[in-house]
Computed example of a mutant assay.
Amino acid sequence: MARHMEPVIILVRPQMGENIGAAARAMLNFGLTELRLVEPRDGWPNPRAVAMASGAAGQVLDRARVFPTLAEAMFDIDYAYATTARGREMTKPVLTPATAMADAHERDARGERVALIYGPERAGLENDDVARANAIITVPVNPDFPSLNLAQAVLLTGYEWSRDRLPNQPAPHGRRPDAEVPATRIEIEKLADHWENRLDEAGFFFPAEKAPGMKLTLRNLWARMPLTRADAQIFHGMLRQLIRRN
């Protein structure tokens, strides 16, 4: 039976605690929680990593394991992807994050344990590190500036791993309850009446023989607009304010 396990994130010789914390946040954004560290420069645990992880992502750091070498960190890994922007002389598949994570899902379905390997911030993975991976992930970015920071690289691959499990559209949040509710026909009729009456008082429908056609056109305009209740309230408020200023 397939194990269906998330990829292991391996940070090789990370230099700054803040970057480890930011990587942990990027991991948890997409449900990744298994972090392994190889020779972190400033030791472990690192209070700066905890501060940057901010809240729930601290659980990723709490579970993080430290290893003296990359080979030891890969003790249970069946297939590994090394992330690097630099060209290599080794013969390995070179994949985008999307194709790599599609491949990783297939391997996971077969019961293989996969890992994503990221190098230190300043210079990236060394050839000896890349040699231990089965494939290379390279992000297709601006060739004049291909550098990504550690958390960005983790975020991109994490997103591609979880993309098929995410909602098709972001859930709205932080809005008033009526912001997404369509206006009813009665609400639109009242809005149309409000504007027609005020425009009539202002002499907008001129000359008189054209007034019926102008009102019909305006009424049709309101009916065509996909208004929410919040939209209707804004239009009422705009008109009231204009009347007050006059």
Score class of each variant (00 low, 15 high):
2 A>D: 07
5 M>F: 04
10 I>G: 00
10 I>H: 00
11 L>E: 00
12 V>E: 02
13 R>F: 09
17 G>S: 11
18 E>D: 14
19 N>L: 11
22 A>L: 14
25 R>F: 02
30 F>L: 08
31 G>W: 07
44 W>P: 02
46 N>R: 04
46 N>W: 02
47 P>R: 14
51 A>C: 04
55 G>E: 06
58 G>C: 13
58 G>E: 14
61 L>E: 01
62 D>Q: 15
62 D>W: 11
63 R>E: 14
67 F>P: 04
68 P>C: 12
69 T>S: 15
70 L>D: 01
71 A>G: 13
71 A>D: 15
75 F>I: 09
78 D>W: 08
82 A>E: 00
82 A>V: 03
84 T>G: 01
85 A>D: 06
85 A>F: 07
86 R>C: 07
86 R>N: 12
87 G>F: 11
87 G>P: 09
88 R>H: 09
90 M>N: 04
92 K>T: 05
93 P>D: 14
95 L>T: 04
96 T>C: 06
96 T>N: 03
101 M>W: 03
114 V>N: 02
114 V>D: 01
118 Y>E: 00
118 Y>M: 05
126 E>I: 02
130 V>Q: 00
131 A>M: 15
133 A>V: 07
134 N>L: 06
135 A>P: 03
135 A>F: 04
136 I>Q: 02
136 I>P: 02
136 I>A: 02
136 I>D: 01
137 I>E: 02
138 T>F: 05
139 V>H: 05
143 P>D: 03
146 P>V: 09
153 A>R: 01
154 V>L: 07
155 L>S: 14
156 L>E: 02
159 Y>E: 04
166 L>S: 10
166 L>F: 12
167 P>M: 07
170 P>K: 06
173 H>A: 13
176 R>T: 10
178 D>E: 15
186 I>V: 12
194 H>F: 14
196 E>T: 13
199 L>M: 15
200 D>I: 00
201 E>M: 10
206 F>K: 13
213 G>S: 12
214 M>F: 10
215 K>V: 09
215 K>W: 08
215 K>D: 07
216 L>V: 06
218 L>E: 02
221 L>R: 06
222 W>N: 00
224 R>G: 00
225 M>P: 00
226 P>Y: 06
227 L>G: 03
230 A>H: 12
233 Q>L: 12
234 I>N: 09
236 H>Y: 15
237 G>A: 15
237 G>E: 07
237 G>M: 09
238 M>E: 02
238 M>R: 09
242 L>P: 00
245 R>P: 00
246 N>A: 11
